[in-house]
Simulated assay, not measured.
Amino acid sequence: MDAVWLEVTVETTGAELDSLSARLTGNGATGLVIEDEEDFKSFLEQNRQYWDYVDDQLLERMKGAARIKFYVTDDADGQGQLAKWMEGIDLPYTTARLRENDWATSWQKYYKPMAVGQRLYIVPEWERGEAVPDGRTALYLNPGLTFGTGSHASTRLCLEWVEEFAREGESALDLGCGSGILSIAALLLGSREAVGVDIDPKAVGVAYENAAMNGIGRDRYTVRAGDVLTDMALRAEMARQRYDMVLANIVADVIIPLSLPARELLAPGGVFLCSGIIDTRAEEVCAALERNGLRVVGRKDRDGWVALAAKQEVAKG
């Protein structure tokens, strides 16, 4: 039988968070989770280059937050531990019962096979074995590993572009690859080889694992940790092999400076497919692409998000 835990939430004020944390730690408490609206806002501001949009539900959950959470087992031992950890702390707290299995698998019910474009069919790995519609190519994915499940409008738009531009025997470069969904899709749809790059080193193992689920080995797929905007050696290495398709499903503030190295990384006649752009910033991104020698040849819109396709301007004369 699954263990049952208590999630204990102690409400306080922002000014008292540090002292409460110190008192709980002094009482032997471990695994503290601190939620503070002001720290959350500072984090968003300091890292705003990585997103244009933050989920409304997350913003609401953090509104006015100044709380500490910790977990004990829902039994006599856990109750004794809770009493010891709260000793001398005269603050109200609430508890919520959680089964261990709830943490591990409850989120899976939200992910079901999903058709994208005309040919792709995104399948959670635990649904392997279910029938795939005729004419569609299954892309198996573990959505719990990292960002990039195919469900977000920006990812779906970019996958539709990949479907249109992937060609037999060509190559793809996925910048900010995350789960690897875009580059894996390119390989399944005909690309000869692909490279994924992400600033998060954890993405390397994740993308390789998802590729393996789809029968794609490292002879065709390479994943690297790094940032082509700041690592000139990595950019030079990538540029030695120009790519027929460069992909970037990130945000406008990253795509804009990325438009210059993207041109350098494209093979003659190659296409830069970029998504994750809020519609109010689409013209700004188009202007940056054109300024850096990339001609916008297509645009897709969905749910307030935009994905662009751009090609190198060919020199005349």
Rank of each mutant, 00 (worst) to 15 (best):
A3F: 06
V4W: 11
L6E: 15
E7G: 07
V8M: 04
E11S: 11
T13W: 04
L17E: 11
L17T: 11
L17Y: 07
A22G: 14
A22V: 11
R23P: 08
A29P: 00
T30Y: 00
D39R: 15
F40H: 13
N47C: 00
W51M: 12
D52E: 01
V54P: 00
D56T: 13
D56M: 07
E60K: 15
E60N: 11
M62E: 13
K63G: 07
R67W: 03
R67A: 09
Y71A: 01
T73H: 13
T73A: 15
D77P: 02
G78S: 03
G80H: 04
K84W: 01
W85R: 05
M86Y: 09
E87H: 13
L91A: 09
L91T: 12
T95L: 02
N101R: 12
D102Y: 07
T105C: 08
W107P: 10
Y110A: 15
Y111D: 01
P113S: 03
A115N: 06
A115Q: 14
G117W: 02
Y121D: 09
I122M: 10
E127A: 15
A131M: 12
A131Q: 09
P133N: 04
D134Q: 14
R136S: 07
P143I: 02
L145V: 05
A153K: 10
A153F: 00
A153Y: 01
S154G: 05
R156A: 15
A172K: 04
L173T: 02
G178K: 05
G178Y: 02
G180A: 03
G180H: 06
S183F: 02
I184Q: 04
G190E: 06
R192H: 15
E193M: 09
E193A: 08
A194F: 09
V197D: 03
D198Y: 04
P201M: 09
V204F: 06
V204N: 04
V206T: 08
M213K: 12
I216L: 09
I216E: 07
R218V: 02
V223R: 03
R224K: 14
D231P: 04
M232S: 15
A233R: 12
A233C: 02
Q241I: 00
D244S: 13
A248N: 04
N249T: 01
I250M: 15
V251R: 13
V251D: 14
R263K: 13
L266G: 09
P268V: 01
P268Y: 05
G269I: 09
V271P: 00
D279N: 13
T280S: 13
E283H: 03
E283W: 02
E283A: 13
V285L: 11
C286S: 14
C286K: 14
A287K: 11
A288Y: 02
G293V: 04
K300Q: 14
D301A: 08
R302F: 06
G304P: 07
W305S: 07
W305E: 11
A307P: 05
A309S: 10
A309N: 01
K311G: 04
A315R: 15
A315N: 12
A315Q: 12
G317N: 15
